[in-house]
Amino acid sequence: MTDWLGPAEWDALRLSLRVSAVATLASLPLALLVAHALARWRFPGHGLLNGLVHLPLVLPPVVTGYLLLLTFGRRGWVGQTLDEWFSLVFAFRWTGAALAAAVMAFPLMVRAIRLSVEAVDPRLEAAAGSLGASRPWVWLTITLPLIAPGVIAGAVLAFAKAMGEFGATITFVSNIPGQTQTLPSAIYSFLQVPGGETQAGRLVLVSVAVAMTALVLSEWLARRAARRVAGR
């Protein structure tokens, strides 16, 4: 098995898994917040927030990547501040790849969670309140378990999207083997050199396998959670 993939290919797979996992987990809390805000709260700028969240879905990925480079690059105003205050650098690092993947996958995650939040009966939350539960407790004991299937579905979808993210990543953090060369970037690189088709082909198989596994796993988890929520 180890021989089947070369070290460069292993690097790409490992990096992709890490980038996608970090992107998914790190954006999950923000996605929960934004999904609640969009589903439940009425505030000025509601439409603007909605548009902003969905922007990466409709913008050319290259544009998203370039905008990330402008803001989070070494000279970008956010990137500079983060570097000075937290020594957190995104440009041309795997962290930047994770950021790009997170931004690209964010709309999908928010949409899935928002739909499940909208499906929660607020009267159940009111009932929990009447039994003495404060807002945070109501959220933890009633809302969260009820939206769990949507959260899981959204997270897995985001993970799969992050695994396949290419355009914004390569624009923002380039394609450095071992640093920022994720699976799609590696496949792209192999296809650029003569005789790289076999290596590319192996990575394509790996991509398909990872994506399938993620989908099957999410289906199974979501169905389990839905069964629990429906109380059967």
Partner: peptide, 21 residues
């Protein structure tokens, strides 16, 4: 007093049992 601090037992028309518990 906030609703959840009133210590009132409300019996709703539609029961409102928590489906996941």
């Amino acid at each position: 007093v906030a609703p959840h601090r009133r210590r009132l037992g409300i019996i709703f028309q539609d029961g409102r049992l928590f489906p996941h518990l």
